[in-house]
Write a protein that binds this DNA or RNA. Structure first.
Length: 273
DNA sequence: GTATTTGTTGTTGC
DNA sequence: TGCAACAACAAATA
């Protein structure tokens, strides 16, 4: 599920329910693979009785901070999700971590367990600061994109957009959305893009990030009721999975193929090889 | 039973 | 060395 904006959506969901609240109990399965590399018993000891003091989202990851100077990093993998349930919530099969506050249960669900929970004693884990500069930051320049594309010259541009070290937070649907808006065919070699196309790609990376964050995670205090509640019909997003889907701009049928190892959707009428 | 999945990492080979 | 391709991880759904 989670790419840039979904991570922000889930962070905000937990934050709004529990910021400033005390964690009264921690429920977890010590053997669950999502705890790989961490010590589940240490998580339980450190969080039980601690206060939820703050949170942050970067790329596809979230960081939740607690009193006592400990923090919990969360990556949702392919099928992870964070929910807020009522206080008397009974854990289900794939609920690997439940934090109980006075009013709510904060639940981490992940059927496929590609996600991960990382515990850290300290306000900010070292790996958190190593996440690449955000696409919406000043460090994400058209020159930086051009340089990266030159280094990955022979790879299809779709595969390059999925590389987190330069496009943090971009996942499969965002990459397709960006290429569709920039009118670039996903199979084009990264090194074959002309300067005007690199600029268009850079601009649409920023636009899609901004629109996705506003649309999916809401602005200010507002949090949409669910993830896709407000995604407009003129986004590729709304048509990419439907059988017989058509390009919202040209009306022509959409194409699908595996590019860079992932199912890719594009509009042949707009995106030419 | 087969194929598919909004992600990442380790391995292999060029 | 650096880069590109691919399998593996795991479980639900069609």
């Amino acid at each position: 599920m989670p790419e840039l904006a979904e991570a922000e959506f889930f962070r905000k969901r937990w934050h709004q329910a529990a910021a400033g609240q005390r964690i009264l109990a921690v429920r977890l399965h010590p053997a669950a693979k999502i705890f790989r590399g961490s010590n589940p018993a240490a998580i339980r000891r450190a969080l039980a009785g601690a206060k939820f003091t703050g949170s942050e989202a970067r790329a596809k990851q979230m960081l939740f901070r607690f009193s006592g100077g400990v923090s919990l990093g969360v990556h949702l993998g392919m099928s992870g999700e964070l929910r807020v349930e009522p206080g008397n919530y009974v854990a289900q099969k794939h609920d690997h971590l439940v934090l109980d506050t006075r009013k709510h249960a904060l639940v981490f669900i992940d059927p496929r367990m590609f996600g991960r929970v990382q515990f850290h004693r300290g306000v900010t884990p070292p790996w958190w600061t190593k996440i690449a500069p955000a696409i919406l930051s000043d460090a994400f320049t058209v020159e930086a994109v051009a340089t990266f594309l030159r280094r990955r010259a022979r790879a299809p541009i779709k595969a390059v957009l999925l590389m987190q070290e330069r496009f943090p937070g971009v996942g499969n649907w965002m990459a397709d959305e960006i290429l569709w808006r920039a009118a670039i065919h996903p199979k084009r070699r990264a090194g074959s893009l002309r300067p005007a196309e690199v600029r268009a790609l850079w601009r649409e990376c920023r636009r899609v990030c901004r629109l996705a964050l506003d649309t999916i995670a809401g602005r200010g205090k507002y949090l949409p009721p669910d993830l896709n509640a407000h995604i407009p019909k003129n986004w590729l997003f709304r048509h990419r999975w439907e059988a017989g889907g058509r390009c919202p701009r040209t009306g022509a049928p959409l194409a699908r193929a595996t590019v860079g190892g992932r199912t890719t959707c594009w509009s042949p009428a707009r995106q030419k090889l």
